[in-house]
Simulated assay, not measured.
Amino acid sequence: QLLGLALACIGFLGSIISCALPPWRITKTFRDYEMPFSVVEGLWKRCVISPTGEMECMGYEYMLLPLDMKAARGLIITAIIIEVLGILLGVAGRNCMNFVPDERQRRKMALTSGIAFLIAGFFVLIPVSWTTNTISDHFEPIESFNHPDYLLLKKMELGAALYIGWFTTVLLFLGGGLVCSSFFRRNGTE
């Protein structure tokens, strides 16, 4: 149970980091053989990185935020809230703590904590998978400025926050599963 709670706490930190980091997806745009400029999109802001390395960030206006990012904001924040509740229930349901004197109630709190971590894992998995699915990993020609001679190539890549989100999902599933299995192992017939 303690190992499961520790993994879920690390997953909680991963959820916060994934929510706060800007690089959810990176769009690199090339023109002929020039150096690319990149657009880094996150849940809260969009940054443009010039070929010289200069970075300019700005927040989204809500209507300009892509649909998958809107959903990701809500789902990740919901996951963080569920994880906080799961951690509180997990700590209160520990055998070494005496917040609740009744052993049966402590076991039920631990089970509820494990289920909360599993649910939070799904709430992280959905936006990470959705955003990954929207990223095309090939070069896509686009015409710019309505000029046929001015051809740009665009390539989208996964950002670091998505990798952290995948790792967080695994930690939450493992932690929730271990906490739930400790309930069934100790409980036996219930």
Score class of each variant (00 low, 15 high):
Glu54Met: 10
Ser50Lys: 07
Gly59Met: 09
Ser50Ala: 10
Cys19Ile: 09
Gly53Trp: 04
Ile16Gly: 00
Ile49Lys: 15
Cys57Gln: 06
Phe37Gly: 08
Cys57Pro: 13
Ile17Ser: 09
Lys45Trp: 10
Lys28Tyr: 11
Leu64Ile: 02
Ala20Gly: 06
Met63His: 03
Glu34Asp: 12
Ile26Cys: 05
Ile26Tyr: 02
Val40Trp: 00
Asp32Trp: 06
Cys57Phe: 10
Leu43Arg: 00
Met55Val: 08
Met35Thr: 04
Lys45Leu: 08
Pro51Met: 13
Glu54Asp: 13
Tyr62Met: 04
Cys19Arg: 02
Gly59Phe: 09
Arg31Glu: 12
Ser50Phe: 09
Leu64Gly: 07
Ser18Val: 06
Tyr62Ala: 02
Val40Asn: 01
Thr27Val: 10
Ile49Val: 15
Gly53Leu: 01
Ala20Ile: 03
Lys28Asp: 14
Ile26Ser: 04
Arg31Asp: 12
Tyr60Phe: 14
Leu64Val: 03
Trp44Ala: 13
Ser50Thr: 10
Asp32Thr: 04
Ile49Ser: 11
Val48His: 11
Gly59Tyr: 11
Glu61Pro: 08
Arg25Val: 08
Arg25Thr: 08
Leu65Trp: 03
Glu56Gln: 13
Thr27Pro: 06
Ile16Trp: 02
Leu43Ser: 01
Pro22Gly: 10
Glu61Lys: 02
Pro23Met: 07
Leu21Val: 05
